[in-house]
Design a protein around this nucleic acid. Structure first.
Length: 726
DNA sequence: TAGTCTGGGCTTTTT
DNA sequence: GCCCAGACTA
C-alpha cells in the first residue's frame, strides 16, 4: 500500500478504483504514466491479480518500455516483493496484434511466417497495382490511393463493403482489391492488416474471443484519444464481461486524426460503458502556472470539449517570450542566441532546450545555422535509421531469405548492388514465373541449378550468368537459414553480395552507410536466441524515437507531432505564422483547424520553465519569400503573460554552451573567392569563356561561365579545373 | 544497364 | 527553392 503515498487524491482514486470500465482524462504533465504503472502494481500487489492476466497497450515501443520498467520498479519496492512483471502482456497495439495473429495464423490467409510491410513497401505495392491497371501514377497518386485504403481498413471497411461514390473511389476500390490479393500472395500483411485481421478474427470466432477474454481479463490502454475505429473495436472485443478496461487519455492532445485516430472514441467509451467511472487529472507536475494559463487560453477556444482546470504548485514562473525575427535565417540565429543565453542565465544545459516546428522542412534552416556555428544538435525523425536505403536493403535480403515469396523485397534487391539483372531481365523472369505458375524466386533457383532451361526462356547469356550467380547464393541462404545464427547469416549475405565494397566508395557518406549496417548487425546480435522472425518483426514495428541518442548534450530539434509525450525545461516554438501554424492545408476544414490548435497546445505544454515563441516577418514557404501573417494563435495569448522584449543578443565566442559541447566544432576555413565576374578562364572541355556570376556556397565556390561556343555552365570551382587567363 | 536530366509537388507519419 | 521519381541518353 505504501506505493499509494506518492499519489494525489485524483491519481489515487484512479489507481484504486474497483475493476470496471474506467476513463482517466489526464491533462498534460498530470502523471498519466505514473497512474498506469501504479494501477498495474495495484492489481498485482493489492488485488492479487496474476500478472499474466494483464494486457497493457500503448502506441509506441518507447511508451511500452517505459511503462514496463516503471512497473518493475514498483514491484521491486512492494512490501510483498517477489512479483515479476515479465508475464504482463505489455506492448503496442500492432505488436499485440502481431502476437495474436502469429498464434492463430491457421485462420488467416497468410502463414505464421508472414512479414509486415512497412510504409515504403505499402507504397511500392500500391504503385505496382496502379501500373498493372495501366493507370498513370502521376494522375492517380499511389500515396493518395493508399491513404484511402488505409483509412478504410482503420474503419474496418473491407473491399466488399467499400462503396465507390466517386470516380477516384472506384479506382481506389479496384486497387484495394488487387493490393490485398498481392499482400496475401507475398505472404505479407501491412500495418493496418495487423489490426484489421485481429478484429475480424475475434468477431468471427466466438471460441477464440472467449479464450482471449479469459486470458486477459484486465486491460489498460495508454493515449486512448489516439485510437482508431479498429483499435477501439479490438478493445471492445477483448474486454471480458464484466469488463475491466482502464483507459487513459486526453482528447486535447489528439493530433493524429489524419492517421485515423478519433478522439470521439472517448465519448463512445462513456456511451458503450454507461457505468464507466470518469476521473479528471488536473494537477500538473511539469510546467509553471504561466505556461499552463497560456495553454488553457489556447485550448479553451476549441468547442465541445470537457474543460480541464490545469493547476500547479510550482508558482507563476517567468512570462513567456514572443519574438519576431526578420526571416527564417534570422529566426534560426535568434534560436541559437537564445539557447546560448539560456545556458548562461538559467543553469540549463543545451540538452534541456528543444526547438519545435510544424513541418520538417523548417528544420533545414535551423540545421544550417547550427552547422555554421559548429554546434551540435539532435534531430528527431527526419533521416530515420530504419528508413535508410542500406538498412532497408539488408532487411529486404533477410526478409527474402525468411519468406522467399516476398516479391517486393525480391524486386528491391535483385539488382542491388548492381549485378547485371536489369529491368528487362526482371521482366523476363516475372513472365516465366507467371506462365509456369511458380514463384519468381523458384525460377531464379531453378535456373541456377539447371541452366539448360534458360535457352527456352530466351535470356541473354550475360543476364543468365548473373541470375545463376545470384540464384546460387539465394539457394544456399535458404538452405542454411535455420542452421546458423542470425548474425552469421547476415555476415554470409553481406560477404556473398560484396556489400561493403559496394557501399564504401571513398566518400564520407559511404562510410556512414557501412556504419549503419554494422549498427543493424549489432541489433541482430540481441536476437541470436529468438531468431529471424522475431528480429524482422522488431525492425518492422520499431519507431524513430527508439533510435534517438540520449547522450549528446545538445538541443533537440523536432516537429510538434514528435514532441508529444516529451518535456523540456525550455521550449522554443518557431514559425508562428498563419499558413505554417496553423498550417495552410487545414484552413478550410474546421476539424483540421481544431487539431492544429491542439498541436500548438501540445507544444506549449511540453515546457517546464520557459516558453519562447518565434515568428518571422518574411518567410519562404514554397517559391519566393513573402510577407508572413502572424499566427492567429498569437492573439489568443493573454497579454499580461507575454513578454515581447527580445532577449539580449550574445555572441557565441567563449560561451559555456560551446565550451561544454562534447563534439568538436567543425572549423572550416572560410572559402576565399578566386574568381570574379568578367574574368576570362579556360576549361578542358568547353574551352574559353567569361565568368558571369560567382557564388560562395559554404565550402566551395560556384561559378557561372558563358563559353565561347555559346554554352552557359554552372560549375563547382574546385572540381572544374579552371585556368585563369588574365 | 547506369548515370544525368527534367518536372511536378510540396503537412504532420506512434506502427 | 529543393527533392524525388521517371524519362532519357551514353
Amino acid at each position: 500500500m505504501h506505493t499509494l503515498e506518492h499519489l494525489n487524491p485524483q491519481q489515487r482514486q484512479a489507481v484504486t478504483s474497483p475493476p470496471g470500465p474506467i476513463l482517466v482524462l489526464a491533462g498534460p504533465g498530470s502523471g498519466k504514466t505514473r497512474v498506469l504503472s501504479h494501477r498495474i502494481a495495484y492489481l498485482i500487489c493489492d488485488l492479487m491479480t496474476d500478472p499474466g492476466k494483464i494486457l497493457a497497450v500503448t502506441f509506441t515501443n518507447k511508451a511500452a518500455r517505459e511503462m514496463g520498467s516503471r512497473v518493475q520498479r514498483l514491484l521491486d519496492n512492494s512490501p510483498g516483493g517477489g512479483f515479476e512483471n515479465r508475464r504482463i502482456r505489455l506492448g503496442t497495439f500492432h505488436a499485440t496484434c502481431a502476437m495474436l495473429l502469429r498464434r492463430e495464423a491457421v485462420y488467416l490467409p497468410v502463414t505464421r511466417e508472414f512479414v509486415i510491410f512497412d510504409d515504403a513497401d505499402q507504397q511500392s505495392l500500391t504503385r505496382q497495382v496502379i501500373k498493372e491497371m495501366r493507370l498513370d501514377p502521376k494522375q492517380v497518386s499511389p500515396s493518395k490511393v493508399h491513404g484511402v485504403i488505409s483509412r478504410a481498413k482503420n474503419e474496418l471497411i473491407d473491399v466488399e463493403t467499400f462503396t465507390a461514390d466517386t470516380y477516384f473511389n472506384e479506382i481506389a476500390r479496384r486497387v484495394y482489391e488487387r493490393y490485398q490479393a498481392l499482400l496475401v500472395a507475398n505472404n505479407a500483411v501491412d500495418f493496418d492488416d495487423l489490426l484489421f485481421y485481429a478484429v475480424r478474427l475475434l468477431q468471427n470466432n466466438e471460441n477464440l474471443r472467449r479464450r482471449y477474454q479469459h486470458e486477459y481479463p484486465h486491460i489498460l490502454v495508454d493515449e486512448f484519444q489516439d485510437t482508431n475505429m479498429a483499435q477501439y473495436t479490438l478493445l471492445q472485443l477483448l474486454a471480458s464481461d464484466p469488463p475491466d478496461l482502464f483507459v487513459v487519455g486526453d482528447p486535447d492532445q489528439s493530433i493524429y486524426r489524419w492517421r485515423g485516430a478519433d478522439y470521439r472514441n472517448v465519448g463512445r467509451f462513456k456511451e458503450d460503458y454507461p457505468g464507466a467511472r470518469t476521473i479528471l487529472l488536473e494537477q500538473n507536475y511539469r510546467s509553471t502556472q504561466t505556461i499552463l494559463d497560456v495553454a488553457t487560453a489556447i485550448i479553451d477556444r476549441n468547442h465541445g470539449r470537457v474543460k480541464k482546470h490545469l493547476f500547479t504548485e510550482r508558482g507563476r514562473g517567468e512570462p513567456i517570450v514572443l519574438h519576431e525575427a526578420y526571416d527564417e535565417a534570422d529566426e534560426a540565429s535568434y534560436v541559437i542566441d537564445t539557447i546560448a543565453k539560456l545556458t548562461l542565465i538559467d543553469d540549463s544545459d543545451p540538452r534541456d532546450c528543444a526547438v519545435m516546428y510544424r513541418t520538417n522542412a523548417q528544420s533545414r534552416v535551423l540545421e544550417e545555422a547550427f552547422l555554421r556555428k559548429g554546434l551540435p544538435y539532435r534531430l528527431v525523425g527526419a533521416q530515420r535509421f530504419y528508413g535508410r536505403r542500406e538498412v532497408k536493403d539488408l532487411i529486404a535480403y533477410l526478409r527474402l531469405v525468411h519468406n522467399p515469396v516476398d516479391k517486393v523485397s525480391l524486386l528491391r534487391i535483385v539488382n542491388t548492388p548492381p549485378r547485371g539483372i536489369g529491368a528487362k531481365t526482371v521482366e523476363s523472369l516475372l513472365a516465366i514465373a507467371s506462365s509456369r505458375q511458380i514463384e519468381p524466386y523458384e525460377v531464379i533457383i531453378e535456373l541456377s541449378r539447371d541452366q539448360g532451361n534458360a535457352l527456352e526462356a530466351g535470356l541473354q547469356a550475360r543476364a543468365l550468368r548473373s541470375i545463376v550467380d545470384f540464384g546460387g547464393h539465394l539457394d544456399e541462404w535458404l538452405q542454411i537459414r535455420n542452421q546458423i545464427a542470425l548474425v552469421e547469416l547476415i555476415n554470409k549475405v553481406l560477404r556473398d553480395i560484396g556489400y561493403q565494397s559496394y557501399l564504401v566508395d571513398g566518400t564520407e557518406e559511404g562510410e556512414e552507410r557501412w556504419e549503419n549496417i554494422e549498427e543493424l548487425r549489432a541489433v541482430a546480435e540481441e536476437y541470436t536466441d529468438t531468431g529471424l522472425t522475431t528480429f524482422l518483426e522488431h525492425v518492422a514495428l520499431i519507431s524513430d524515437q527508439d533510435t534517438l541518442t540520449e547522450t549528446l548534450n545538445a538541443p533537440t530539434l523536432l516537429t510538434l507531432h514528435a514532441a508529444k509525450g516529451l518535456e523540456f525545461q525550455n521550449v522554443i516554438i518557431i514559425g508562428l505564422d498563419d499558413g505554417v501554424l496553423p498550417h495552410l492545408r487545414s484552413f478550410d476544414d474546421p476539424e483540421a483547424m481544431a487539431e492544429e490548435r491542439r498541436l500548438f497546445y501540445v507544444g506549449v505544454t511540453r515546457a517546464m520553465d520557459r516558453l519562447i515563441l518565434v515568428r518571422a516577418f518574411r518567410r519562404r514557404i514554397a517559391g519566393p519569400s513573402t510577407l508572413a501573417e502572424p499566427s492567429r494563435y498569437i492573439d489568443d495569448l493573454p497579454p499580461d503573460l507575454v513578454e515581447g522584449v527580445r532577449l539580449d543578443r550574445f555572441s557565441w565566442e567563449n560561451r559555456t554552451y560551446q565550451a561544454e559541447t562534447s563534439w568538436d566544432p567543425v572549423n572550416r576555413d572560410p572559402v576565399e573567392p578566386h574568381f570574379k565576374v568578367g574574368m576570362r578562364v579556360h576549361h578542358g572541355t568547353f574551352g574559353e569563356g567569361i565568368i558571369i556570376n560567382t557564388k560562395l556556397d559554404r565550402d566551395d565556390e560556384e561559378v557561372t561561365i558563358s563559353f565561347e561556343n555559346g554554352e552557359t555552365k554552372h560549375l563547382v570551382a574546385s572540381l572544374a579545373g579552371l585556368e585563369i587567363l588574365d
